[in-house]
Nucleic acid binder design. Structure first.
Lengths: 204, 204
DNA sequence: TTTGCATACTAAACAGTGTTTAGTATATTT
DNA sequence: AAATATACTAAACACTGTTTAGTATGCAAA
């Protein structure tokens, strides 16, 4: 019965080819420049073939999004290993911002675009990996609240506060709005601002 | 010489018609659903005519963006009138978030989409109204820093910190990512988080 | 009044987009 | 060998922004 298995493997291989082509095109031409027809052209199949492997474009974007989380995890390794909760929050913040700044297209897919999320709606799946990330942050916040006996009781509110701060910073950087604060100082501004955020919460 | 004037007035009127149609369509079908052809259809002219009044679609989005700032100013009236700097920051924060939550499409145009900004690049204009808003916030921050003698010396960093916080919160709400913290609690979560943000900075 | 010209506008085309349908080869099973 | 299932695609549909070439209309000078 090796035949059915071979067929299945070949199906999986073409699916993977589509995904790899999509990734390549997105990294070269951005999320806006990614089209079904470009993918089809790249893998030398017709556009209609893509739809035998993916329901629609949103599903492709959703699978790319999941690859993005794998990439982000690599930025987080130092943070995951840190024992001290407060120090861990600092490391998470830095890693999050570094990832966001260095991987605009991945970041937008994971945290900004609503297209991969539309696929979730259609399929009633969850935003698994994002949820895991948030829970990890919230747990770290709980540790920090206990250790520093902070006024803030709710660790999920504190986690949302931290997330909003860094998300806002990354988004302003991406959309070039940060340039108006001080031109050509993006990197420095972001580092300073992140520091102020964390200090104002933990280092009073 | 009333003729030339009448002609000019008629040109301005059609330009305004285009803009009003664009606004109407954007509010009904969102920014994604706004197309040159829909505008043309609405005002009963051909799509090509639009290009006699606007360079491209980005210029239309840019002019809509400026209308958005007028709308936002209405939310800010109470904040503008407030005498106390710290209280003013609280009011600005609330107004900003209310505007953002109640006017997703306007907000995206003003603070997230890069399309109206592309027009700025092409024309070497500035992001005037956004800049004015930021300066107003920064000036208020300077007052607050002086009055509370806060550690934070740089009012523009503090302003960026505040802006990032509320911008991040609004963007997470728009992209439904906030749902994962606690489903169907969006409004409450945002209010609580905004409060924590401001308290952690000013009320230590 | 007639000619000439600028203005205002548009039909149609170009080059894209996501997606669907109907049909064709190829390979497997009966 | 015939029937069937699989894998794939050409072509179409309904859109998108934008450009080009051409057509009326109205005004001004001859």
């Amino acid at each position: 019965m090796g035949l059915a298995e071979r067929k299945e493997r070949e199906k999986a291989e073409l699916k993977e080819m589509i995904l790899q082509a999509a990734k390549k095109i997105m990294l070269k031409h951005g999320q806006e420049g990614l089209s079904i027809r470009k993918i089809a052209n790249d893998i030398e199949y017709s556009p209609a073939t893509i739809y035998l492997y993916f329901k629609d474009k949103d599903e492709i974007l959703h699978e790319l999004m999941e690859l993005g989380f794998l990439k982000m995890n690599k930025y987080m390794t130092a943070a995951f290993a840190e024992g001290d909760a407060v120090q861990r929050i600092y490391l998470i913040g830095e890693a999050y911002i570094n990832f966001g700044l260095e991987n605009k297209d991945w970041y937008d897919l994971m945290f900004s675009s609503d297209k991969p999320m539309k696929h979730i709606e259609k399929c009633r799946e969850d935003w698994d990996q994002g949820m895991m990330m948030f829970d990890f942050l919230a747990n770290t916040c709980k540790e920090a609240i206990d250790r520093l006996s902070l006024k803030s009781q709710d660790e999920r509110i504190l986690a949302l506060q931290l997330w909003s701060c860094v998300h806002g910073l990354v988004m302003l950087a991406h959309s070039e709005r940060i340039e108006i604060v001080e031109p050509n100082q993006k990197e420095t501004l972001i580092k300073k601002t992140l520091d102020c955020m964390l200090v104002s919460i933990f280092d009073k």
